[in-house]
Every structure is written in structure tokens, then in C-alpha cells.
């Protein structure tokens, strides 16, 4: 396959992992995070440093990167998840900027030079395997008792607590799981592009991931997949349409985000959308069984 398309496919795969893991935190558990790229960056840096300095094999460094990101997810999650709504969002944003600043100043991370000369180890097969595993794991979590607790917290935190759900515990758990997968995605990113820089994992990247989740549909894993594909392909597509549009493609990108939100504010696939119901008629919107208690 053409190297250009292969690269786009790889980036789509990495973005799917990022979007699906943020969707677990923001879509299913309802905790708005503006710092998801932070965990991606932590995963990328730790996987790279472990691989370079300790000489561990790729897959093991990848997993250690994910674990380190999860540990940071715990460290950041414990104090900040006491905050609600927009305050949580800004605290996660703050941690992201602090982490970026630290990475820019430490010697071991290469500072403003970034880390270069990372061995090429990520290939499309590993990315596909990682995507499938991530989607599988997140789906299993969502359909388990833990996932039901996440959703209960999203729907009504006070009511969930009244039902005996330890909301702090589950919010942190959701954060840690999300951070783990984001760390894996970061490792894949580092070993694919072979060069990482603190600004690759800054606020703009976090926003990009959030856009994927919201565009695809919050609280729907397949929505996150679709959102990741659209947000990755759209700028590339605009580049190829015509030279004029290529010049203005980021302008169109911003404009399209606004238009898509106005046309479909709940995201492309809404929460009720489920692929298993495709054979039940039109596009598979779930019919509510029985009466609904209001």
C-alpha cells in the first residue's frame, strides 16, 4: 500500500484508541477531561525512555508506557476528581500544561529538542491489533457491573451514591483505565513517527480527541471510532480536493466543526445507537422495551 495511506491508517488507529478511551471517561462516566493528550504524552515518553535506556522489547515498553500513564492517571485523578464539571475540565487542562512544561525542561526528555531517533517498531498490524483489543476491552468494561456504575454516575451522581455506588472510586477507576489506553496510544505514536516533542501532546491534541468523541457521539464506543476516522481524514481529504481548498483547509475544518455541531449536537451516533440491532430495522435505533418510568 502507498506509504501515505498507510500513515493515515496508522494515525486513524491511534486516534481511535485515544477517542475510545476518552469516551470511557467523558462519554460513559460523564467526567469532562481537557487533558487526555497528557496521558498520551506520558505513555509516549515513558515507553520511549524505557526502550532506549533499558533496551526492553517494543511490546513490553508499550505496556509499561500504558501502566505509567495509568499511575499518573491515578495521581492526577485522586485530587481532581473531587471537582465537578468545568472545574474538573480546567484542572485537567492545568495538569496537561504543567506536564508539557516539565517535559520541555527536563534533560531526560530532551527538553525543547524533543526525543529523536526512536526505532521504528509500530506497524499497521500492531495498530490494528491494539485497536481491536482496546475496543473489545472497553466494550467488556461498559457491559460489566463496573460499566453500569460508570453510566449511573454520568446520569446522576447523587442518585448513584444513594444507590451505594462509591462514586469517587469508580470515577478514579474510569480515569485510570482511560489513561492506560491513552498511554498505549502514545507509545504507538512515538514508535511510529520516531520523534516526539512536548507540543505533540498539548492542549490542542486534547481538544482534537475531545472533538472526535463529541462528533461521533458521547457515550457510544462506535461513535468514538467514527469520530476519530472523520477528524483524522477530514483535513487530509480537504488537502486533496483542490489546491485552493488545501490552502484554506484549516479554515474549513473549523467551519465544519461548527456546522456539524449545529446540525447534530448529540453527535453522529447517539447514545442509544447499537450495531447489534442493525437487523431490527432502520439504522438500528434501539426501541425502548416496555414503559419508561419518568
Amino acid at each position: 500500500m502507498n506509504a501515505y495511506y498507510l500513515q493515515i491508517l496508522t494515525v486513524i488507529g491511534i486516534n481511535i484508541i485515544l477517542a475510545a478511551s476518552l469516551n470511557l471517561i467523558s462519554g460513559y462516566t460523564g467526567q469532562l477531561s481537557l487533558g487526555h493528550a497528557t496521558f498520551m504524552g506520558i505513555g509516549a515518553y515513558s515507553a520511549t525512555l524505557i526502550s532506549i535506556h533499558l533496551g526492553l522489547p517494543f511490546i513490553i515498553s508499550l505496556i509499561i508506557g500504558g501502566v505509567v500513564a495509568a499511575i499518573f492517571g491515578f495521581i492526577i485523578g485522586v485530587p481532581t476528581l473531587r471537582l465537578k464539571g468545568d472545574y474538573l475540565a480546567i484542572a485537567t487542562l492545568g495538569f496537561g500544561e504543567i506536564m508539557k512544561n516539565i517535559n520541555l525542561n527536563l534533560k531526560i526528555t530532551g527538553g525543547p529538542m524533543g526525543l529523536r531517533g526512536i526505532p521504528q517498531a509500530t506497524n499497521i498490524y500492531i495498530v490494528i491489533a491494539a485497536v481491536v483489543l482496546t475496543i473489545f476491552a472497553i466494550n467488556r468494561i461498559i457491559n460489566s457491573r463496573v460499566g453500569k456504575s460508570f453510566i449511573a454516575i454520568r446520569e446522576d451522581e447523587l442518585a448513584a451514591e444513594a444507590m451505594g455506588i462509591n462514586t469517587t472510586h469508580y470515577k478514579i477507576l474510569s480515569f485510570v483505565i482511560g489513561a492506560f489506553f491513552a498511554g498505549i496510544a502514545g507509545g504507538l505514536y512515538a514508535f511510529f513517527f520516531r520523534y516526539i516533542h512536548p507540543s505533540n501532546f498539548g492542549f490542542m491534541k486534547s481538544i482534537e480527541i475531545l472533538c472526535m468523541v463529541v462528533l461521533g457521539g458521547m457515550g457510544n464506543t462506535y461513535g468514538a471510532v467514527l469520530g476519530a476516522i472523520i477528524i483524522t481524514v477530514l483535513p487530509e481529504f480537504l488537502r486533496t480536493v483542490s489546491p485552493v481548498i488545501s490552502q484554506y483547509r484549516m479554515v474549513f475544518y473549523g467551519l465544519l466543526l461548527v456546522i456539524m455541531m449545529i446540525v447534530r449536537p448529540q453527535g453522529i451516533l447517539s447514545q442509544d445507537f447499537d450495531f447489534t440491532l442493525f437487523n431490527h430495522g432502520l439504522l438500528g435505533y434501539k426501541k425502548k422495551k416496555g414503559g419508561q418510568i419518568q
Binding site: L32, I207, L210, C211, V214, L215, M218, Y248, M250, V251, Y253, G254, L255, L256, L257, V258, M261, I262, P265, Q266
Partner: peptide
Amino acid sequence: ANRIAPLISAIGVSIFLQN
């Protein structure tokens, strides 16, 4: 709409104006 859609719309405007 829900609370997050205007947020994304705002980000869209920001990207639009910046570029």
C-alpha cells in the same frame, strides 16, 4: 443542546478565526 456541543462549536470558531 447538551452542554458540550457549544463547547466544540466554540473550538471550531476558534480554529476558524485563527487560521
